[in-house]
């Protein structure tokens, strides 16, 4: 990707944000602000600020949008410059009734191929692209050596994951960065569920409690993996779980606010649903 294209996307984003602010349909535009060589999420409310709008940074802004709208009165309305993952986050939050999508105008931002590779993203584009050009669906198996994990047998995976999970310093970065990890009481902090104040966390409780809790909500943004200071490939684990739900139920989180998770609703129980479950020694 060339600098020229990036500038072009940024210009496009500024132009759309400027127009939205002038028209006055929204109270602000949530996007990333370039400040002192960093990017931070920021609610742009005036055209002057837009010169520092940044679109190349990675930060899941959906959580910020949720908290922002929750604190405001019910009339506030914002626009969000959202990548594919940000949009899927917002849709999942809407399913949990954490945000009201009527109060959000999504400005779709398409990621570049490099960005998609960087995030291991399968679907680096929102439903409606307004900024940039969609690079289409990515087959991650070609790119990201997930095949290696699939080819391992159970004992090898055990060795792989125990070594990796042992690095965990329990910083809760994976949980904090995830817009969908927004439970008020978190089981990962409760002594009833995990050993508190001890590192490394016990295998497999700590990481698998989070994995099962997010299994049908994760939209595959890889923010947890990027946030992890110890390089634990949590995103890859979640990607494989997403694959399971896709193959068994044809379900993908974050696609449609009206689509409910098959794990949470009554979908009947066809034989294909049972795939992967070993029933107690049945012959």
């Amino acid at each position: 990707m060339t600098e020229e294209v990036r500038d072009n996307r940024e210009e496009q984003a500024r132009e759309i944000a400027g127009r939205l602010l002038t028209e006055g349909n929204v109270d602000g535009v949530l996007a990333l602000l370039h400040v002192m060589d960093h990017v931070v999420p920021h609610l742009f409310t005036s055209r002057e600020e837009l010169a520092h709008l940044n679109i190349s940074g990675h930060y899941p802004v959906a959580g910020v949008a949720e908290r922002l709208l929750r604190r405001w009165d019910n009339n506030g309305r914002i626009a969000v410059i959202a990548r594919g993952c940000d949009e899927r986050h917002l849709i999942e939050l809407a399913k949990k009734k954490s945000v009201n999508l009527d109060r959000i105008k999504i400005v779709g931002l398409a990621c570049t191929v490099d960005e998609a590779k960087d995030c291991h993203c399968v679907r680096p584009f929102p439903t409606e692209v307004e900024v940039g050009r969609s690079v289409g669906k990515v087959d991650y198996l070609d790119h990201f050596a997930l095949g290696e994990l699939i080819r391992m047998d159970i004992a090898e995976r055990r060795k792989f994951w125990t070594q990796i999970f042992d690095r965990c310093i329990k910083c809760y970065g994976c949980r904090n960065v995830c817009p969908l990890c927004n439970c008020e009481d978190c089981r990962l902090e409760e002594a009833r569920w995990v050993r508190v104040g001890e590192i490394p966390p016990e295998y497999p409780s700590f990481h698998l409690i989070r994995a099962v809790h997010l299994a049908d909500k994760c939209v595959g943004c890889f923010a947890c993996e990027r946030a992890c200071p110890m390089g634990i490939p949590l995103g890859k684990l979640h990607q494989l779980i997403r694959d399971y739900l896709q193959s068994v139920y044809g379900y993908e989180a974050g696609r449609d606010p009206d689509e409910r998770s098959p794990i949470q609703i009554d979908v009947g129980i066809g034989p294909d649903v049972l795939q992967g479950l070993r029933r107690g020694g049945e012959d």
């Binding site: 994990l149 159970i154 004992a155 090898e156 995976r157 055990r158 060795k159 792989f160 994951w161 125990t162 497999p204 990481h207 698998l208 994995a211 099962v212 299994a215 049908d216 684990l237 494989l240 779980i241 399971y244 739900l245 068994v248 098959p262 794990i263 009554d266 979908v267 009947g268 129980i269 649903v273 049972l274 795939q275 992967g276 479950l277 070993r278 029933r279 107690g280 020694g281 049945e282």
Partner: peptide, 30 residues
Amino acid sequence: TGNEQAWKRLALLSNILALAGVYPERLGVH
């Protein structure tokens, strides 16, 4: 349908366990 709901959840878990290196046979359902 309580048991059907449980079944879906446990089938998912069984898959997650296998991915994370736990023998899914450790989980028995009858």
